Simulated assay, not measured.
Amino acid sequence: MGDSFFKKENAKKKAKKLKEKAQRREERKSSNNKGKSLESMFVYVDENGQLHDTPPTQERTEINLEDIQLGAAPIPEESPVKTGTVEKFILEKGYGFIREDNGSGDTIFFHTNDLLELVKQQDRVTFEKEKSPKGYKAIQIKKL
Rank of each mutant, 00 (worst) to 15 (best):
E66K: 09
E66V: 01
E66G: 02
D67W: 01
I68E: 00
I68H: 00
I68Y: 00
I68G: 01
Q69D: 11
L70G: 02
A72Q: 10
A73W: 03
A73Y: 01
I75H: 03
I75A: 06
I75N: 03
E77W: 00
E78S: 14
S79M: 06
S79T: 04
S79D: 14
S79G: 10
P80M: 05
V81W: 09
K82C: 10
T83H: 10
G84Y: 01
T85V: 12
V86I: 12
E87S: 10
E87N: 10
K88L: 13
K88N: 10
K88S: 10
F89K: 02
I90G: 02
L91W: 02
L91E: 00
E92G: 13
E92N: 14
Y95L: 06
Y95H: 13
F97Y: 12
I98K: 05
I98M: 06
R99V: 15
R99Y: 04
R99G: 05
R99A: 10
R99F: 07
D101C: 08
D101P: 01
D101M: 07
N102F: 04
G103V: 08
G103A: 02
S104T: 09
S104M: 08
S104H: 07
S104I: 00
G105V: 04
G105Q: 04
G105A: 06
G105M: 10
D106Y: 00
D106L: 06
D106Q: 09
T107V: 05
I108A: 04
I108H: 07
F110T: 06
F110E: 02
H111Q: 15
H111K: 07
H111T: 14
T112Q: 09
T112A: 07
T112V: 15
T112G: 03
N113F: 11
N113W: 01
N113Y: 07
D114K: 01
D114T: 13
D114Q: 13
D114V: 11
D114G: 05
D114C: 11
L115Q: 05
L115N: 03
L116M: 14
L116E: 04
L116Q: 15
L116Y: 01
E117A: 08
L118D: 11
L118A: 15
L118R: 12
K120D: 15
K120A: 14
Q121Y: 02
Q121D: 13
Q121R: 02
Q122H: 08
Q122C: 08
Q122K: 14
D123M: 12
D123C: 13
V125P: 12
T126M: 11
T126Y: 07
T126D: 03
T126W: 05
F127T: 01
E128Q: 15
K129A: 03
K129M: 08
E130D: 13
E130W: 06
K131E: 11
K131Y: 03
S132Y: 00
S132K: 03
S132G: 09
S132F: 00
P133L: 14
P133R: 09
P133G: 15
P133Y: 11
K134Q: 05
K134G: 04
G135Q: 05
G135D: 11
Y136V: 06
K137H: 12
A138T: 12
A138V: 09
A138F: 03
I139F: 02
